[in-house]
Structure formats: structure tokens, C-alpha cells
Amino acid sequence: MDAAARARLIRALAGTVIAHADELTGLDQAIGDGDHGLNMKRGFETVLAEADTLAAQPLPAMLAGIGKTLVMRVGGASGPLYGTLFLTLGKTLPEESGMADAAPALEAAVAAVKARGKSDAGQKTMLDVLVPVLEELKAGGEGLPARLAATAHAAAEATVPMRAVRGRASFLGERSVGHMDPGARSSALMVEAVVTWLEEQA
């Protein structure tokens, strides 16, 4: 994988987040404080501005760099969580990594998110997308990329009937039911971006 490919990955991630910022904010207005899209956009705009510098580094350093930028720019709950996710991916992936390294790295990253958020799947958060995606990744097999994207979107949809136990939506109690979790949606979008990028690589 060369710098150009890595830069395409950054643009794919940032592009989808920025393009869906209003939608994410809208979801957060329904059951949060209405800033998730704004927060994520602010972070990924900075990532985008630094794309070439970041992509010049090896993949692990690039991912850690993205994580650091997200931590320092996003704010809110999603900043430390997505920051931790990318930082841990970067720290866990070996310098020369292949598809086989993906599952252990994501496993470590998801565990770090859980620790940071004192949370787990089933609480109507981004983890309700990240955990099933990790399981699918670990399962491996035929047509994995397409299955990952499908799993991610289905998992985001599946947060709609959930009652929030973590995040601001938890203040709503019963009233959090019936809305998709904004962080679940942003996670699904990023998973899809990675999958599309992967497929274009092949």
C-alpha cells in the first residue's frame, strides 16, 4: 500500500463523515444535543487538511495520527472514543500489516473504546456497530468486505428500537426508543467507506 492509497483512505473516511454531517446532527438533535455531525465534521476537516502529511507515514502511524487529531479536535463524547479507536488501531497494527492483522487490531481498538466509555454493546452507542463488525471480521470467509458493510448498516438500524443506557440519549429513558443512535450511524458510514476503499484497492 502506497501513500496515495493511504491518502485515498483518509479522503474516503473524511468524505463520508463530512457529507453526512447534517444527517448526523439531525439524529443527535432527536436524542442528544445536536452536535454529533458538527463535532465529527470539525475533526475530519482537520484530518483532511493534514491528509498528505498523515498519508506520508506508514499505516499504523497514520491511523494513530488520525486518532490524535480526532482527540484534539472533535470534543464531546465521540472525540475521545473515535480518537481512542484510531489511536489503538495504530498502536496495535504491525508496521508491515496485512488483512490478517485487521481483526486483532480492531479487537484491541474496540476494547479500548469500551474501557474509555465504560460501555458495551447493547447500550445504544457506536459500540452496537463496532462490536458486530468486529465479530464479522473475526468470522472471516467469503465476501467479507460486502458482509462487513451490510452488518454495519443493519447494526446501526438495530439501534432504533434500543433504549439508551450510555451517552446523552440515556437521559431520555424510554423516549430514546425509536431513533437511530448518531454514533452508530457515523460508525456504519466509516465502516462502509473503509470497505469501499478496500474493494477499490483490490
Partner: peptide
């Protein structure tokens, strides 16, 4: 930022 926690 407005209604968004500060960053570390």
C-alpha cells in the same frame, strides 16, 4: 465549542 466538551 457550543455544547461540546473541550478537548484534552
Amino acid at each position: 465549542q457550543v455544547f461540546t466538551s473541550p478537548t484534552p
